[in-house]
């Protein structure tokens, strides 16, 4: 974070403007939209895991929760602006409660993993059983395994008839992602972000220096969840249906794989990992010779064994070693979590 802020922001803006202009020529915007949404989801875990050292096995819970909150409130309200805001706020509030319970309880790594995993499972099981007509929130039937179809999708604020879909939805999602990246950049440059990294590196030291570790972790966890909730709400708009599969363990696993492959401790890594792997999965889905899951699993195992730092940091250090003359040699800022 030693580069001047203006250069950092300008870099992000130029790169994303280029990508938004060029990518639709290469890949259809329908696919591209979901890649952007997954990128945002990857970033949400990348923020709390890569910079906060919180390994959440249930980021999919927040993704699904955002989607469900959006769908339920969109059915009831019939307009999309308030549901979008609700999706983010409810998810963040839920995560703040959950995080407070875990962090003030001083739970260790593995226990944190178990609890987030279990919460995801509870949501998954619960939503799956809500098929009966008695499970209604306002006008929205939860629909159990079938999910909720037919809710109001994204519209221009204040005008429920002016739907945003297709190409426009892509541009909305892309701009949302850029704004989220800028906010994350700002957060990491602020003292809050630097203290979060300090907590990742040595929790006891930060506590001894007088910082309230539990409170800060809770806030960071909630911020990550809010981003995941936003991604979930956008996903609901893209898919036009929400199903319990959003909460599935497979979804959680995928988010973790994206972060590992892309590279932890970077902002770019999880986004690249998410979009890249999701696109790879999309391409693989078109053939049936080798099972999709098999390849995802192999990718994860190989990366953990041979490239635990991830793609983006590895490429960056290769770049610096070969052509980057004049760049200051920085000691690697990021170490993987290795608690034994």
């Amino acid at each position: 974070m030693r580069r001047p802020a203006a250069r950092d922001v300008a870099g992000i803006l130029v790169a994303s403007a280029l990508l938004i202009a060029v990518m639709p020529m290469l890949i259809g915007t329908y696919t591209l939209t979901v890649l952007v949404i997954y990128g945002m989801l990857g970033l949400s875990l990348g923020l709390i895991w890569g910079f906060g050292g919180i390994l959440c096995f249930g980021q999919a819970a927040f993704f699904g929760l955002g989607a469900y909150v959006y769908a339920i409130s969109a059915v009831n309200i019939g307009e999309s602006t308030l549901p979008m805001i609700l999706a983010v706020l409810v998810t963040a509030g839920f995560a703040a409660l959950l995080g407070a319970m875990m962090f003030y309880g001083r739970l260790g790594d593995v226990y944190l993993g178990v609890i987030t995993l279990v919460v995801t499972l509870i949501l998954f099981k619960f939503i799956n059983t809500t098929a009966g007509p008695q499970y209604v929130i306002g006008k929205a039937r939860l629909g159990g395994f079938n999910g909720i179809p037919g809710f109001q999708t994204l519209n221009v604020p204040g005008d429920p008839e002016a739907y945003i879909w297709g190409d426009q939805l892509f541009y909305v999602c892309a701009v949302a992602l850029v704004i989220v990246v800028l906010l994350v950049t700002w957060l990491l440059r602020s003292s809050f972000g630097r203290i979060a990294v300090g907590i990742r590196e040595n929790e006891t030291r930060m506590a001894l220096m007088g910082y309230d570790v539990a409170a800060r972790k809770t806030v960071l966890f909630a911020v990550g969840a809010a981003i995941a909730g936003l991604a979930g709400a956008l996903f609901a708009n893209w898919a036009e249906i929400v199903t319990p599969n959003l909460f599935s363990l497979g979804q959680s696993a995928e988010i973790i794989i994206w972060c590992i492959v892309g590279g932890l401790g970077t902002r770019l890594g999880p986004i690249v990992g998410a979009a890249g792997l999701a696109y790879l999965k999309f391409m693989l889905g078109q053939q049936s010779m080798i099972d999709n899951t098999l390849i995802m699993g192999l990718v994860l195992v190989l990366f953990v064994l041979f490239l635990p730092r991830g793609l983006v940091p590895a490429v960056a250090s290769l770049w610096r070693a070969s052509v980057g003359r004049g760049t200051r040699r920085r000691p690697s800022r990021h170490r993987r979590l290795r608690h034994g």
Binding site: L55, D109, V110, G113, A253, I256, I257, I260, I290, D291, N292, T293, L294, I295, M296, G297, L298, V299, L300, V301, V304, L305, P308, R336, L337, R338, H339, G340
Partner: peptide, 27 residues
Amino acid sequence: RHLYGRLVDTMLATWGLSLVFIGLATM
């Protein structure tokens, strides 16, 4: 064998393995 003492990494690697086994069994 390569990951002893790295709790989080073993969890991730075995999660990957579980996906591999699911894929193999499906095939």
